[in-house]
Amino acid sequence: MKLRDFVLRRIILAIPVIFGVLTITWFLSYVVGDPLAMYVTERTPDAAIPGIIRARGLDAPLVVQYFLYLTALFQGDWGVSTTTGADQPVLTVLARLFPATIELSIVAMSIAIVLGIPLGIISATRKDKAADHVTRVFALIGVSMPIFWFGLMLKYVLFYQLSVWDLPHLPGGDRYNFRAFGSWQPTTGFLLIDSLLFEHNPALFLDAVVHLIMPAFCLGYITLAIITRMMRSSMLEVIKEDYITLAKSKGLSERVVIYKHALRNALIPTVTVIGLAFGGLITGAVLTETIFNWPGLGRWATNSILNSDIAAINGFTLLVAFIFVIANFIVDMIYGVLDPRIRFG
């Protein structure tokens, strides 16, 4: 099986990447902060400090500490985070917060792909016409506007101003209306899935969707703009290719030429951008989550950095590295589907 070899080789190649990421972050976190800081407060008596150092293994040589960290990591002990208040295992926190972030990111990415690819095609096929100019300005705004300003403006207009004028408005933050629905029991952690499959509450689902619109669009706008621009330029490139002339000479209609012969070739560079952007979305969620009070990883990660909560920082970085690797793996698989020349190459 060629496909199995391909997948296997990809996985083997991912190991040094992950290993490199966790080694670098671990050592860096020791460079930039005092590992003791997260275990002591102003009220910790001086006499207790040597005890804490010994208990946490901070007196061992750096290399030994590193290997202890690795061993613990493989045993499923990612350390303890103090950022959320009480000591909590990092894995538990990740498991609790991650679904909210990934849900937001997936919806943002879906918006970006579903709008970005057709906009790019329209822009390319109507080059220098009105539709192209409008799309290009829309995309230019997307890549140029800082996410925090855009988020605040969205919120100011669609939430604040509309509610001032007593018009129907979008919610200004949160994942759902807590006052109306109370707390929910996370099964998968994805509110969109849980509300329908486990809570059997379509009203809650709708509420979750309404709450997602603004943050997801805010987060996805940059990616949407990048995809649109990429799709436009690669489409323009492809429609100049000889095989498009051949397709036309066969008597195929413009629609078939563009959506069958050109699209598949033009998607290849776009897919690369999508893969890279997905990893960026997870980290880019930090600002969006803060603006829209979204209970995800982003805010927790920021606070961990501010508190120099080393275990949390390492855990978050490792998770993002995993997502990057998985996203690129999926991109490589899609490459293979789109382009036979790359297939299992």
Binding site: D242, Y243, A247, K248, S249, K250, N265, L338, R341
Partner: peptide, 19 residues
């Protein structure tokens, strides 16, 4: 096109659709 009148182009490397 392609039915009553058809054409064979110059470069067999670039004219077939690679995918």
């Amino acid at each position: 096109r392609g039915n009553r009148i058809s054409i064979v182009f110059q470069d067999p490397a670039t004219y077939p659709n690679p995918v």
